[in-house]
C-alpha cells in the first residue's frame, strides 16, 4: 500500500469506529420506560464485560499460571471493594512476581 491508500484505510477505520459509538448517544435521548428493555440495558454491560474478561484474562500474560495468579489477586481486591486502580496494580505486580518465580525454576524464559 502507498501512503495515500494507508491514509484512506485509516479514515475508513475511523468512520466505522466512530459511527457505532456516536449514533446511539445522539439519537437515543429518551429514557426507556419498558421494564424488560430497561432491564436488558442494565444487564447488558455486565454481560459484555464478562465475555471480554473470561476466559481471556488467563491467557493475557506470558503463562496461564501467572494469568490465574493475577486474576486471583484482582478478584480478591475487587471482592474487598478496594477500587479499580488497586485491583489493576495488584494484578500486575502479582503477575510480575509469579513470572520471575516461574523464570527461576525454568518454566518460562
Amino acid at each position: 500500500m502507498n501512503d495515500a491508500q494507508v491514509l484512506l484505510t485509516v479514515f475508513v477505520m475511523g468512520i466505522c469506529t466512530y459511527l457505532p459509538r456516536m449514533l446511539p448517544l445522539v439519537f437515543l435521548r429518551k429514557k426507556i420506560e419498558n421494564p424488560h428493555v430497561s432491564a436488558f440495558l442494565t444487564y447488558l454491560p455486565y454481560g459484555i464485560l464478562t465475555a471480554m474478561v473470561i476466559p481471556d484474562i488467563f491467557f493475557s500474560t506470558a503463562s496461564p499460571i501467572s494469568g490465574i495468579a493475577g486474576a486471583a489477586a484482582a478478584f480478591f481486591l475487587a471482592f474487598k471493594k478496594k477500587g479499580l486502580l488497586p485491583a489493576a496494580v495488584a494484578a500486575v505486580v502479582t503477575v510480575f512476581l509469579v513470572e520471575r518465580l516461574l523464570g527461576m525454576i525454568g518454566w518460562i524464559s
Binding site: Y46, I57, T61, S66, A74, A78, L84, A91, V92, V95
Partner: peptide
C-alpha cells in the same frame, strides 16, 4: 517482562468493575 505483567491490567480493572455489584 513488564509488558507481559501489564497485559493483565485492563482485565483486572474489569473484574473490579463487575464483582462488587
Amino acid at each position: 517482562p513488564i509488558r507481559s505483567a501489564m497485559g493483565i491490567a485492563l482485565y483486572a480493572m474489569f473484574i473490579a468493575i463487575i464483582l462488587p455489584p
